[in-house]
Design a protein around this nucleic acid. Structure first.
Length: 277
DNA sequence: ACGAGGTCCTGCGAGC
DNA sequence: TGCTCGCAGGACCTCG
């Protein structure tokens, strides 16, 4: 499930393969992924347009075109964005949502088994309002403790839910919220406005270090996630809590607990290490 | 402001 | 073996 580190990995691999290329032949195989744009307008805009920038915002891949439009793709749960330099095998063609031929054999493919992913086409004004609704980037140089504290201010919601709220902080999903809370020894159910200054400082550091390590590992592949070149990430073996419910805590040996009490999503934590502080 | 629950979507594994 | 069912869950929605 692509979160910030996975999308960052995708973008880093797509960038040198896409920037400067012109879309010769766009094809759309499913229309239910489109948001705010018709099939005809998306294809007409892509055709003969040049990709001038590939960027990440939160968990979204942003392709800026020479026309000034941006194609924004959210892979969500099962989406992948891969550049191929060869013809695809029939099994690789399954679940393709959008493909953009780029001349020669090169083709950008957006594949999404469950089609929970979305594709937007935005002009300059549309992009400004789109990005304005998303919180700050946690890996940006200016995301210091004060900015993090501001993200948590004014809500009594569980800290885990707040970490995953894209309007407050960009790019953190279920896996890395679990991991960061464990690393910081913070109770996931603690109301966000009740974190002590020390706990807030630990959590700020943990969010940054967890995300940076996952980026260095090119993301976490549990099932569907692939990098921009179709490879697996390597961070899954480094997870301390996600998917480890019932197994021993790496710090104290206590059996890790999994609940669905926070927003109905799997939360795995150590009852002993992550007490209320 | 908040929590609960529904919606989208398909593959997979558990249970019978 | 073959069927049904619940779950995976990010982002969005409505309702109370």
């Amino acid at each position: 499930m692509p979160e910030l580190p996975e999308v960052e990995t995708i973008v880093r691999e797509l960038r040198p393969r896409l920037v400067g290329r012109t879309v010769t032949r766009p094809r759309l195989h499913a229309t239910d992924v489109l948001r705010g744009v018709s099939r005809g307008r998306l294809l007409a805009t892509l055709r003969t347009n040049r990709i001038v920038e590939v960027a990440r915002r939160a968990k979204h891949v942003v392709l800026r075109l020479a026309s000034g439009h941006r194609v924004v793709i959210q892979p969500r749960m099962t989406g992948s964005l891969i550049v191929y330099g060869r013809r695809l095998r029939p099994d690789e063609r399954r679940y393709i949502v959008l493909e953009a031929s780029l001349g020669g054999q090169r083709v950008l493919v957006f594949r999404d088994v469950r089609r929970l992913g979305t594709v937007w086409l935005l002009d300059e004004a549309g992009w400004r309002s789109y990005t304005a609704r998303i919180g700050p980037e946690p890996l940006a140089a200016d995301f210091d403790l004060a900015r993090f504290a501001a993200c948590l201010r004014g809500t009594r919601q569980a800290i885990k839910k707040v970490l995953m709220d894209q309007r407050r902080i960009a790019g953190v999903g279920n896996i890395y919220a679990n991991e960061a809370l464990y690393r910081a020894r913070v109770d996931p159910s603690l109301p966000a406005d009740q974190l002590s200054p020390r706990a807030r400082r630990r959590l700020h550091a943990a969010v940054l270090s967890v995300l940076r390590e996952a980026v260095a590992h090119r993301g976490t592949t549990l099932r569907d996630y692939r990098t921009g070149t179709g490879e697996h990430g390597e961070h899954q073996t480094a997870l301390a809590v996600y998917g480890r419910g019932g197994e021993p805590c790496l710090r104290c040996g206590t059996r890790l607990t999994t609940t669905h009490a926070i927003d109905g999503r799997a939360t795995t934590f150590c009852y002993r290490c992550q007490g209320r502080t």
